[in-house]
Amino acid sequence: MAQAREIDPRPWYLLSPALLAIALLVVVPMSFILVYSFYENIDLGLDAPAFQFGNWRELLTDGYYHDAIWKTFRLSAIVTVLAAVLGYVPAYFIANTRFRHKWLLLLLLILPFWVSFIIRTLSWIHIMGNQGAINGLLLWLGVIDEPLPMMFNEFAVIVGFIHVFLPYMILNVYVSLEGIDRNLEPAARTLGCTPWQAFLEVTLPLSLPGLAAGCLLVFVLTAGSYVTPLILGGPDDFLFGNLIYDAVLSELNWPMGATLSFALLVLLGVVVVVYSRFMRLNQLSKAFG
């Protein structure tokens, strides 16, 4: 009988600080939230400890919440696809440029992070608003007679999300592209591929782990957002996060807010698990070299 292999404990020693941090900062707080979801909200801001399933029943049976889940996943998917398409091109350019100071391009990419997320989001009002830069220019050129309605609708929300999350996509794809042997494309060309075929059949498949990681990141970040629709959206533009905001901050109903928060965590967890099944999550590590 083969002797059982000894387990090397060193990875666990190395991982222990991270595991401890996750346990303290994620697992423990989420456990509190789960417990709180069974509490009962008596009045505004007044909760009673209990073990009842009223909040979960409401979530599972009320179409209002199901609509919000559908809207959230739909919008997240749109943002993810657009970010993937729009993000791949600059990532490819940065990875393949012969520009000596490539670090400068990467710096430009993370430069927006130095400005507050809220301010970056608000800036779109000055770009796409009635008196914003785009409408101002079009009116001045005589292309339009009255401002185009670009603000406070789903379009504005999508633009806002892509603006904020695009760097995450570009960085992931860039790291993946950087790890590809630069001789592979020329090799494919010598074997008869056109440049486009060489990209489609060599570079793109090899960069998929980075693209997959970027997509997962953008999807999860979008699905968990609530500020962007609040600032750039109209009355119809809201995500599941906005319902949590309402429950916690407006209705002061923490048990319901806890229920919705935990439900969102579970839903996004399911997305990650399903995604890892299809995309083989272990492949994502390749995106980071």
Binding site: L44, P235, D236, S250, E251, N253
Partner: peptide
């Protein structure tokens, strides 16, 4: 009436 009507408003605001 605040608890009940505040909730009603939050839903109507979102198109319910």
């Amino acid at each position: 009436v605040e608890k009940q009507q505040r909730k009603a408003w939050n839903r109507i605001k979102k198109g319910a």
